[in-house]
Each structure stands twice: as structure tokens, then as C-alpha cells.
């Protein structure tokens, strides 16, 4: 009912919602530059970015799904499946193995998307089933950690392009692609419209089910790619623990970035900022020797703040 217009309090809130993540990242950077020794070291930057890259990639898909009022809990398990498939097919070379892993992600996404779009299962239930099932499948395929020596795959995980780790380059490129997808393509606009009002979108002739299905496929493929990249960096396939709880980090990034869980709006760059913020935050607290529990408490506070800010918009 309320309108986010006149009173100054509201205006501040509207501003915080729009640019809060950027401001928070800026403040944190400044703090670190001033108070954290060696923060500006190139090595430190690289580590931070390499660590956050898989989360960013997964978050991009998550943002798309959340934009349709959905959620994808299966991303971590899909990463594990990708790790397992890579290990199994590495004998054919790194690229065929990568391809198989991505196809695996697409299949998992299709399963989730079909349940949501055609069967009408709630997204949280459908993807929860996949979270359990796909992890199980990955463990059956590769029961224990497998190390590998494929030079191509190892290079994917550890080489650099003009000094920037390849993983980071991939995440950046995907971010731009996703921003383009959301803003400039019919598919992206349809995703946002469906999240905003599904019944109206349907009456307007949008292919609602197909779009929903595709959204989960995209999320699955991105998760699979993140799984391959993480595996490449580890130089080992570890389906038992790879990607555990990453769905929570991804959802956090999306929410902190200001994308409302009620759908109808997707903020791609802010989502990436959300992921960076959480990464920086834990790095900062660790560097200043604060216990892990502190990090969690601060993260919780930030999530609540973000949810509060987006809630205002959602209920207008």
C-alpha cells in the first residue's frame, strides 16, 4: 500500500535499495585499504576473486530463477554431478568432458524446470528433490575423491589471461552476457514479466511454461560450469563435498543485491556485487582475526537489512 515517494525516510530506503550494495562494497574496500595490511597485494586480490567466481556464476542463474518467483536449491548438487561427469569422461579429453558435464547440468535443469513449469510443483519442493537426488547420483558415479592430471583441465583452473585468472574472466564475461540477456532480449523481458504477473503474461501470449523451463535449464548449465571450474581448480573431482551449501551463498548474493524474492525484477550486476560483498566481508573479518561465528552474525545482519529493503518495494 505504501508508496516509496515523499518522506525522507522512504527516500533513503529507496536509495539504499538501489545502490546499497555498491556503497557497502565501497566502504568495505576503503576500510581494508586503510586498515588491512597487504590488502592491495595482487595475490590477495586474485585469491579473493578466484574464490568468489564460482559463486558468482551460480548466482547469475539463481537471480534469473528468483526473478520468476522461483528458487533453485539444486545448484550445489548439480556442481557435484558436473564434477563426477568430468572425472568419468576425462579420458576423452578435457573439452568433451566439459561438454558432457554441461549437458548433465542442462538435464538436471530440465528435470527441475519441467516439474515446476509443466507439472506445477512448487519450485522449492521440486529443486529440493533434485538437491537430494542429484547429489546421490553424483556420489554413485564417483564414490570418492579422484585426482587427475589432465593438463587442459588444470590450465582452465589455474592459468591466467593478461594476469587475470581464467576463472575470473569467465565469470565476468558471463555476468555481462546475463545482463544483456535480462535487459535486451525478448527472453529476458519475458522472464521479468512472468515474475511480475504470471496470469497477465499468460494472457498476453507469452510462452510462460517454455520460459520457466529454460530459466531452470540456464541455472543448471551455469551450476555445472561452476562445478567444472571448481573441480579444475582443485585438480580433483570431489562429488561428496563440492558445492555443499552454495545455494545459500547464491541466494544470499541475489537477495543482498536487491532482487526481490517476490519476482518481477532481476538485478544482475548488483547480484555480483552481493557475492563480492559477502566474500569481502568474511575475508575482512578473518584477516582481523575475528572468529567465524562473527562472520556469520554479520552476514545474517546484512541479509536481514537487504530483505527489509526489498520488502518495502514488494508490498507496494
Amino acid at each position: 500500500m505504501a508508496e516509496a515517494v515523499a518522506p525522507p525516510g522512504r527516500r533513503v530506503l529507496a536509495w539504499a535499495q538501489e545502490y546499497g550494495v555498491y556503497a557497502a562494497v565501497g566502504v568495505l574496500l576503503l576500510f581494508n585499504v586503510l586498515f588491512t595490511p597487504h590488502f592491495l597485494d595482487v595475490a590477495n586480490f586474485r585469491t579473493q576473486l578466484v574464490q568468489v567466481a564460482p559463486i558468482v556464476i551460480v548466482s547469475l542463474g539463481m537471480a534469473l530463477v528468483i526473478g520468476t518467483q522461483g528458487i533453485d536449491l539444486s545448484v550445489g548438487s548439480v556442481m557435484a554431478l558436473a564434477a563426477a561427469l568430468v572425472a568419468l569422461y576425462l579420458g576423452y579429453g578435457a573439452w568433451p568432458a566439459l561438454l558432457v558435464a554441461l549437458v548433465g547440468g542442462a538435464v538436471a535443469g530440465t528435470a527441475g524446470g519441467a516439474l515446476v513449469a509443466y507439472v506445477g510443483v512448487q519450485p522449492i519442493v521440486a529443486t529440493l528433490a533434485l538437491l537430494v537426488g542429484v547429489r546421490g547420483l553424483a556420489n554413485v558415479l564417483v564414490p570418492q575423491l579422484v585426482e587427475f592430471r589432465n593438463p587442459d583441465l588444470i590450465a582452465l583452473g589455474s592459468s591466467s589471461l593478461y594476469g587475470v585468472p581464467v576463472i575470473v574472466v569467465i565469470a565476468a564475461v558471463l555476468t555481462l552476457l546475463m545482463a544483456f540477456l535480462v535487459r535486451r532480449t525478448t527472453f529476458g523481458r519475458q522472464v521479468v514479466a512472468i515474475g511480475g504477473n504470471r496470469a497477465a503474461s499468460e494472457l498476453s501470449g507469452l510462452p510462460v511454461r517454455r520460459v520457466l523451463l529454460l530459466v531452470y535449464v540456464v541455472s543448471g548449465v551455469l551450476a555445472a560450469l561452476a562445478g567444472v571450474l571448481a573441480t579444475a581448480r582443485l585438480q580433483a573431482s570431489d562429488p561428496t563435498s563440492l558445492g555443499l551449501f552454495i545455494e545459500l551463498s547464491a541466494i544470499t548474493a541475489v537477495v543482498v543485491g536487491g532482487t526481490p524474492l517476490s519476482g518481477g525484477r532481476i538485478r544482475v550486476l548488483s547480484t555480483v556485487m552481493g557475492a563480492l560483498l559477502m566474500q569481502l566481508l568474511s575475508a575482512t573479518l578473518i584477516k582481523h582475526n575475528l572468529p567465524q561465528s562473527w562472520t556469520q552474525i554479520v552476514q545474517a545482519v546484512i541479509i536481514l537489512a537487504a530483505v527489509y529493503a526489498t520488502r518495502e518495494r514488494g508490498t507496494r
Partner: peptide, 28 residues
């Protein structure tokens, strides 16, 4: 309930149904 997409702009609401013809190769 079935007409407007409340958060989208006037412009996007008008273009919604015609999007396929207002785009080229999937790009609006």
C-alpha cells in the same frame, strides 16, 4: 490480477505482447 505487470514501466507493459515483432533475432 490478469492485466498489468505492476512493477514494469508503461513502455514495457505496452510492448509485452508484441515483443516478438519488436525484436530482431531475440534482441529487443
Amino acid at each position: 490480477a490478469e492485466g498489468i505487470i505492476p512493477e514494469l514501466s508503461v513502455r514495457e507493459n505496452i510492448a509485452l505482447a508484441a515483443l516478438p515483432s519488436l525484436s530482431r533475432a531475440g534482441v529487443v
